[in-house]
Design a protein around this nucleic acid. Structure first.
Ligand SMILES: [Zn+2]
Ligand SMILES: [Zn+2]
Ligand SMILES: [Zn+2]
Ligand SMILES: [Zn+2]
Lengths: 163, 163
DNA sequence: TTGTTTGTGTTATATTGTAACTTTAAAACC
DNA sequence: GGTTTTAAAGTTACAATATAACACAAACAA
């Protein structure tokens, strides 16, 4: 489960990247006695292939090509499953889904999202997350799910400055 | 601009609350030489009346009653304006809009959202926001807009525990 | 007052997400 | 193995959210 938190730099063995994610998902489902069905696998694979946040409807063609039913409920069910198992995160600001590089570690998905290239990278916000949660608790609020998303420009898309 | 950050406790003079928000908006627009048109005012007023996150389509009836055109573009235009001026925030997790209690202070809108009563209160996340931003900058990412939203249960909706 | 900008009216449509019911396939049980 | 039960997928229809595009009108600037 190494080499998957590559930030915005896209020069990596992406084929291995995908296969690694799928292998991890297989193991995770097996461990939890869950069915990693062909549709679920195909949806996860398609998400990882793009390596960018993908809208639900962008997943439908892949299902159609593979001969599956490709109506919205099919893909949303698969996405629900994958989200519940922490294999993908939903990015609220984009209405889109992205694969999680470390689904075994308990966490919320926090993202830096580039407006220019539409890439998103997951960042660790455990510390600030805890601060926010304790702040919430002080108000008597019981936090359950946290969403931290930052829109901006990634290093690949920053116009090189003088100097 | 006091007494507006009341957390989840709803026992306050809400009429004054609304009028205060409208008065602030008038002042703000006047200061910035912007037109606080009847439609914009009505949308903001309706949002404050609910005092809960409100979907765009929930604003249409109020426009209709007041004799305005009540097609979606009308309300989305008003919402765009109000958002740009910081008078309302959009809550991505809910696809909903809520009035900002302190539109003059530069900030992002961060929210605690109760799943039970659907209330949302804005919290101050300047400190954690800065931590996140500096973390982003270290990765070469230039942050522009930040979204922090926490789903959970508010104190009014927590079933009283034994003891 | 003439042109320009900004806001609104209007129609149509795009995008995202669910409800509800049927059919199929897998698992559990005997 | 055959039966019951449960979970997943197929299918149809639709709800909810958001935007494109163009016409019109009011406000503003010259
Ligand atoms: Zn993750
Ligand atoms: Zn980029
Ligand atoms: Zn605010
Ligand atoms: Zn509540």
């Amino acid at each position: 489960m190494a080499n998957q938190n590559l930030g915005f730099h896209s020069d990596h063995d992406h084929t291995g990247c995908i296969e690694q994610a799928l292998e991890g998902a297989r193991a995770l489902c097996s461990e939890r006695n869950l069915r990693f069905t062909p549709i679920r696998e195909l949806v996860l694979k398609t998400i990882w292939q793009s390596h960018k946040p993908l809208g639900a409807y962008e997943l439908l063609p892949a299902l159609a090509e593979a001969g599956f039913n490709s109506a919205p409920p099919t893909v949303y069910r698969a996405l629900d499953f994958l989200q519940e198992q922490g294999l993908v995160h939903r990015i609220a600001l984009l209405n889109a889904f992205i694969g999680c590089p470390h689904p075994n570690e308990q966490h919320q998905g926090s993202f830096l999202i580039c407006k220019a290239c539409n890439n998103a990278v997951e960042i660790d916000t455990d510390e600030v997350g805890q601060v926010i949660n304790s702040q919430a608790s002080k108000l008597g609020f019981i936090p359950e799910k946290q969403s931290i998303e930052v829109l901006g420009t990634c290093p690949e898309c920053v116009p090189d400055k003088l100097s």
